[in-house]
Simulated scan of single mutants.
Amino acid sequence: MYLQKRAAAAGLFALIMGNALPAMAEWPDKPITLVTPYTPGGNADILARLIAQPLSKRLGKPVIVENRPGAGGMIGAQYAARAKPDGYTLLLGSVANVLYEYFYKNVPMDFGADLLPVSHIASFPNFVVVSPNAGIDSIEEAVQHAKSSSTGISCGNPGIGTTPYLTCEILKNRLGIALTNVPYKGSLPAITDVIGGQITLAVASEALPYMKDGRLKPLAVSSRLPTPLAPEVPPLSHTIEGVDVVAWFGVFAPRNTPQAIIERISSDIAASLKSADMRAKLAGLGATPVGSTPAAFDNYYKAEATRWREEIAAMGIKPR
């Protein structure tokens, strides 16, 4: 009887696996959606579309970029997290997504529990910029401007919790100046307003082309070292010791997505990022390609969450 039960159990297991394996082997058999929780035209959107092209070729099915902006990226992240974990919905996430709980009281999702890391795609430096007509040529002059003005200065950025938002908070707290942090729905509206003089400063990774054509004047780059694409721009760490802020983006999948699918996507992303054409396009954006494994990305983004939790607490920022 015991042997009969074991044989029956083995047969049932083989039947289940026999049905499951063909389904796995057929993936993908329809288009894949890559959700970007930010507005069209920014670096996140451009990066999503850049990686979608070679990924489509490697997977043999279209990878369609879908913009779902709002609430600092929370709307798009929540949408992806609630999708069926079958490999057909992915998220282009960023550091802003993993910091929700430090900025919002009522967060409708647990990012770390609801989504799985797939691959760290790229990192971008942020630039602190002003209009050429602002009469400000350095961070030191911006500080003097803030101290001499009855209203201080304003600092635009693409949204609460983003690395540009955090950079504005660092400027305010570490320099001890009156600064109004102005979150927008994306970088481009902030850039438009700083060019037009509606705000004093903007912090954005998308500022590079505007710097090159003279519409914006850079005061600093937020990374610890100068960027090769604008080596003349001094790091913010020259003024504020220890500052090293970069915007990073990576792909996540809903919890319970099969590991084989996650590994396949991660491998194809890494291969795509090695091409000379892709690296040249990323360099044009000021981005550094990465293409990490799921495990390496898991370690990286969790370390970032820990680091920023400590810095946010030190700056006295409370959830709203």
Rank of each mutant, 00 (worst) to 15 (best):
residue 82 R to P: 03
residue 68 R to T: 11
residue 76 G to F: 11
residue 152 G to S: 03
residue 158 P to R: 04
residue 287 A to K: 13
residue 226 P to H: 05
residue 203 V to E: 12
residue 275 S to R: 07
residue 182 V to Q: 07
residue 20 A to H: 11
residue 312 I to N: 05
residue 26 E to Y: 08
residue 91 L to N: 14
residue 251 V to Y: 04
residue 148 S to Y: 01
residue 267 S to W: 00
residue 193 D to S: 13
residue 214 G to Q: 10
residue 113 A to K: 15
residue 217 K to M: 01
residue 277 D to K: 11
residue 124 F to R: 02
residue 77 A to S: 15
residue 252 F to R: 09
residue 209 P to G: 08
residue 184 Y to S: 06
residue 94 S to V: 04
residue 33 T to K: 15
residue 141 E to I: 04
residue 165 Y to T: 08
residue 311 E to I: 11
residue 43 N to I: 06
residue 66 E to W: 03
residue 72 G to R: 09
residue 287 A to I: 10
residue 264 R to A: 13
residue 292 S to E: 15
residue 36 T to G: 04
residue 2 Y to A: 06
residue 279 R to T: 03
residue 7 A to S: 12
residue 217 K to W: 00
residue 232 E to T: 07
residue 294 P to I: 03
residue 16 I to Y: 01
residue 315 M to W: 14
residue 302 K to M: 02
residue 77 A to P: 06
residue 295 A to G: 01
residue 187 S to G: 14
residue 87 G to W: 07
residue 192 T to C: 00
residue 51 I to C: 10
residue 233 V to K: 00
residue 253 A to E: 14
residue 301 Y to L: 13
residue 58 R to S: 15
residue 206 E to D: 14
residue 92 L to S: 05
residue 126 N to I: 00
residue 80 A to P: 06
residue 109 M to W: 14
residue 300 Y to Q: 14
residue 162 T to K: 00
residue 228 P to M: 12
residue 125 P to T: 03
residue 154 S to M: 04
residue 242 G to T: 08
residue 201 L to H: 05
residue 293 T to K: 13
residue 85 P to E: 05
residue 312 I to A: 06
residue 275 S to P: 13
residue 129 V to N: 02
residue 14 A to Y: 02
residue 229 L to C: 02
residue 136 I to K: 00
residue 283 A to W: 05
residue 261 I to D: 05
residue 193 D to A: 14
residue 283 A to S: 10
residue 69 P to D: 14
residue 232 E to L: 00
residue 172 K to W: 05
residue 123 S to A: 15
residue 101 E to S: 14
residue 175 L to C: 04
residue 135 G to A: 10
residue 43 N to V: 11
residue 95 V to R: 12
residue 233 V to D: 00
residue 291 G to L: 04
residue 111 F to K: 06
residue 212 K to G: 00
residue 223 S to P: 05
residue 125 P to V: 01
residue 167 T to D: 04
residue 8 A to Y: 13
residue 172 K to G: 11
residue 180 T to H: 05
residue 84 K to G: 00
residue 254 P to H: 10
residue 271 A to R: 09
residue 126 N to C: 03
residue 71 A to W: 05
residue 147 K to A: 08
residue 88 Y to C: 14
residue 35 V to K: 09
residue 241 E to P: 08
residue 311 E to L: 14
residue 132 P to T: 08
residue 233 V to L: 01
residue 300 Y to G: 06
residue 76 G to R: 10
residue 274 K to N: 12
residue 145 H to W: 01
residue 70 G to F: 01
residue 84 K to I: 08
residue 243 V to H: 01
residue 227 T to Q: 15
residue 129 V to Y: 04
residue 291 G to I: 09
residue 80 A to L: 09
residue 123 S to Q: 15
residue 308 W to C: 01
